[in-house]
């Protein structure tokens, strides 16, 4: 497994690792995170995963030599997946009425109903959380649904929007600007502000490694209480 550590400014390094597919990338990344949690270098303040990258940020003056980190992490990345980690499955009810659904159908050459079928047929894995608080990048999207992001991102995407962009599907936990194609909406709340006040990790409904299934529904249970916007 090849791994490369480059400086990213004076106080951070970007670890890049090669992976055979997204499951392998996820496993490698989790192995690195687990290693760093068990053997934290002095001054490490943030470890942020990307798809095939891991950003390590340090207190000023504490960033180790990239060569040294590279040698240690190359070993760590070979570690096996955590045998105790049992993925949870979370079901997400979706009304498939997103405003880009027709455009997605046109782009893929498939009928809308087939696009929905393909999207709901897969069990996805939360690859990373990122972009905005609690936004899950879900891997496993059917190749036929790989469509580019919008040329011009929308300035406001409603919270609860289910969207696809490139190789991934995701759910907007909050109302924000965004460039993915909107295909549906859910009332599943992904971010709990009360828990955020108490610094609790369960503020986030979905965590990396969780499995997600989208369940098509006609109506969301609680029409009167849309997700916060």
């Amino acid at each position: 497994m090849s791994l490369r550590v480059d400086p990213f400014g004076p106080n951070a390094v970007l670890v890049r690792f090669a992976a055979r597919g997204e499951l392998d990338a996820f496993t490698r990344c989790q192995a690195l995170l687990r290693y760093l949690e068990q053997h934290p270098p002095v001054g490490l303040i943030e470890s942020t995963p990307g798809m095939t990258t891991l950003l390590l940020e340090f207190e000023p003056g504490h960033c180790p030599q990239p060569e040294f980190l590279g040698a240690i992490l190359a070993d760590a990345a070979r570690l096996d997946p955590d045998p105790l980690a049992q993925p949870r499955t979370v079901e997400v009810p979706v009304v498939y009425d997103g405003q880009d659904l027709d455009a997605v159908a046109a782009r893929t050459g498939l009928p809308v109903s087939r696009c929905v079928e393909l999207h709901a047929a897969v069990t996805y894995r939360v690859q990373i959380l990122g972009f905005c608080p609690g936004f899950p990048y879900l891997s496993g999207l059917d190749r036929r649904l790989h469509v580019p992001r919008l040329d011009t991102p929308r300035t406001r995407v409603p919270a609860g929007s289910v969207a696809i962009g490139g190789e991934h599907t995701g759910i907007y936990p909050v109302s924000t600007a965004g460039g993915w194609n909107l295909i549906g909406r859910t009332d599943l709340r992904l971010l709990d502000p009360e828990a955020a006040l108490a610094d609790r990790r369960d503020a986030f409904t979905l965590h990396p490694g969780d499995l997600v299934r989208f369940v098509p529904v006609r109506h969301l249970r609680d029409q009167s209480a849309p997700p916060p916007s």
Partner: peptide, 10 residues
């Protein structure tokens, strides 16, 4: 397009 990557302030 790049696979999504972590970003730093600055």
């Amino acid at each position: 397009p790049l696979p999504s990557e972590p970003v730093l302030p600055g």
